[in-house]
Amino acid sequence: MTQQRATFVGLSAILLWSTIVGLIRSVSEGLGPVGGAAMIYTLSAVLLIFTVGFPRLSTFPRGYLLVGSLLFVSYELCLSLSLGFAATPTQAIEVGMVNYLWPGMTILLAVCVSRQKIRPLLIPGLLLALAGICRVLGGGEGFSFMQIGNSLYSNPLSYGLAFSGAIIWAVYCVVTKQMARGSNGITLFFMLTALALWVKFFSSPQPEMQVSTRVVVSLLLAAAAMGFGYAAWNLGILHGNVTVLATASYFIPVFSALLAAFILDADLSVPFWQGASMVSLGSLICWWSTRDK
């Protein structure tokens, strides 16, 4: 496969991942936050078995299997449940935007772990991303601390899970680079996530599942977006232009909000789009600050 074609395949993964917020929320509206997420990750795990394959666990570093599994499952639970427990579709999109603080957090943590010198653009990039989240949570009023507080107070569970997920995923990215030694446990991790969600589903009362054509279609698309997204990304990273893929990936918050608004038929304000753009730009600045001259 040529580099140009592999890069195109990698870019398709970014498009697939950008649909996740809207699709997870759409499925949870019919199957419930826990049941919907359990179905998505179960089908995604099946797809990954056929696209990526099941890894030979005997070749994996034991520390990575334990720590990587725990971090990955924790993150996916935070992501899926934060979207599922959102009160409205618009709030789900806002919650998804909070989760996209992870790129800047990952870069900051990686710099600290490797004891590199913090470059001048890193901190402004992080602050810009945080300011973008504040603008998103401010609603139509833009930067309003009262409105931000009201938004967080209205659903601390969803926003808290999303923010926790951003931190967990940043730690996972750094730990994977340090401990994985080239191992790819994504199929196993999805299976463990599905198992954890099913345990939660059967161990506590859940709302009745409302199956409809829209929910089934969203379920299949969500599973495909996750399963095929990881497969396409791996191919792009291995054989494509990594710089192009890395740069494009930092625009996922904007793509995600745009597609989620379409899928969920949500009306987003101008300040929201300004905030989403600030999150993407801040993350891109963080990444740019770490590039070698």
Rank of each mutant, 00 (worst) to 15 (best):
S82Y: 11
S154W: 05
P103C: 04
W273N: 00
L70H: 05
S277A: 15
I107M: 10
R62T: 15
T42Y: 01
L66V: 15
S18N: 06
S154N: 04
V27F: 09
L109I: 15
G32W: 13
N99G: 09
L31W: 05
L281S: 11
I123G: 01
G68I: 09
K177S: 15
G236C: 03
V254G: 01
L79V: 11
L152Y: 07
A37R: 00
I186R: 12
G236V: 06
S26K: 00
T213E: 13
I168A: 08
V52W: 07
L70Y: 13
L127F: 12
S26F: 02
G68H: 11
A261M: 03
V211Q: 10
I107P: 14
I93Y: 08
G142V: 07
P103N: 02
R62M: 14
M39P: 00
L23C: 06
G160D: 05
G240T: 03
G63E: 13
S154M: 02
L101H: 08
F272P: 09
L258R: 02
L284Q: 04
G36Q: 00
Q91F: 06
F255A: 14
V27W: 07
Y159K: 05
L16V: 07
A257H: 04
T290E: 13
T7L: 06
L259Y: 10
G125C: 07
L192G: 11
V199C: 09
V136P: 14
G35Y: 07
M191A: 15
V34H: 01
V27G: 06
Q147W: 13
P124D: 08
L16Y: 09
G160F: 02
V279M: 04
F54R: 05
A45E: 03
A86C: 04
G275P: 01
P103R: 04
L220R: 08
V175H: 12
G282C: 07
T90E: 14
Q274P: 00
L281T: 15
T2Y: 08
V111I: 13
P124T: 09
F255H: 06
V98P: 07
S114C: 01
W233R: 09
G185N: 10
G185W: 10
L192W: 11
M278Y: 08
L71F: 13
V175P: 10
L126N: 07
N99Q: 10
I148T: 10
S283V: 03
I148Q: 12
V98S: 08
F60R: 09
W169T: 04
I263D: 01
M179D: 12
T176C: 09
V175I: 14
M97C: 04
L220V: 14
W17D: 02
P120Q: 05
I49V: 15
W287P: 12
T193I: 05
W169G: 03
F143E: 12
